[in-house]
Design a protein around this nucleic acid. Structure first.
Lengths: 186, 186
DNA sequence: ATCAAATGAGACATTATTGTCTCATGAATA
DNA sequence: TATTCATGAGACAATAATGTCTCATTTGAT
């Protein structure tokens, strides 16, 4: 096999890390190991440094969000529909989103580039949806994208707090987005 | 005088701390001292612990946001107007908002209580504006409040990135909020 | 059942950060 | 001018987190 080390352990660490670090980026590796149900030594066998870990997590998070967005867009009828499917697909990845938002990653140019690419993709999708008439053409695309991101986060929070179900959160976020920035102003 | 220590130094530290910690909650005190243009020893003269500092900052942030919201609401014509004035008043306090959002403060019950109080005030204002017909009565108040917060953050980011002026950001956020959650659906 | 590989526990050294202290300097005040 | 007080610089100890290592145990595959 390519990686001789058991995948389950690695995945447990990664999953626990997203949960923990998305709430507290400064949490210690001991705490992470504990939450992952893994020894601290094992953690270091999989990730040499804290830097290595954080960097890996960032790339995974970006990759997963990217993949989820692509998959969601694949069978969409329009750019507007693709955007909605993307929203729906990204909300469950709130951990990843939160991790990327909270962890200070500016120093890392590789990651910054990947991050920028992901942002650009969202921007392009938003732009395309805008051209379809989903959004008011007078509203800056950058603002729409920011709101998209902000609503993504709000929806995830809402679900986490038990205020709404996944389906409800998607619906609320979508309504807020499209009515708030929609072409048909009252 | 009450505090024999010069206020300028203390304020420099606090201001630098909001800027720094709102971006990176894990930044070292050395870095903070440097940014504040102050010796590390001086920093410890004003704030015994890191905990003391963070706790103080949190209380200041909450107090300032509270005061700004109250002042903004004071001469408003309606609850809806008060909400808009509040939005406008809170955006410049994005540092404080970001600090409170990023710094892990759950452990501190005092601060958690104050934080909750601030949140409840916003909730009440939103609820009142909802009753005035500003928002669709079918949308949960909790969601509206979350969106309000999210847009506050987005507006601050937008200004920070130089994408829009203060006035433009307020306008965009307000439009997004009221049209997105407004009573008159298309 | 055997063997190789991964793991957990824990000791250990290293490092970064924190917090304390002293002393000399500069600024405000009387 | 003399005095008081805040400050900066830096030495220092204490602490917390990190990273490395060893060894016994467990797990999975053959």
């Amino acid at each position: 096999m390519n990686t001789p080390i058991r995948l389950n352990t690695r995945d447990s660490i990664i999953e626990a890390a997203f949960v923990l670090f998305s709430r507290n980026p400064g949490a210690s590796l001991s705490e992470l190991a504990e939450r992952a149900g893994v020894g601290r030594a094992t953690l270091h066998r999989h990730f040499a440094n804290r830097d290595d870990l954080v960097r890996t997590l960032a790339l995974i998070a970006i990759e997963e969000m990217d993949a989820a967005a692509d998959a969601a867009s694949a069978d969409a009828q329009s750019y507007s529909d693709a955007l909605r499917q993307t929203l729906q697909a990204l909300i469950p990845l709130g951990d990843r989103h939160g991790f990327l938002a909270r962890e200070p990653l500016e120093t890392d140019s590789d990651i910054a580039a990947e991050f920028k690419r992901l942002d650009r993709e969202t921007n392009e999708l938003v732009e395309a949806a805008k051209q379809e008439g989903l959004f008011d053409s007078g509203i800056p695309t950058a603002w729409i994208t920011q709101v998209f991101d902000a609503l993504l986060f709000a929806a995830w929070e809402s679900i986490k707090l038990g205020e709404s179900t996944n389906v409800q959160a998607v619906e609320l976020a979508w309504q807020t987005l499209t009515l708030g920035l929609g072409a048909t102003k009252k």
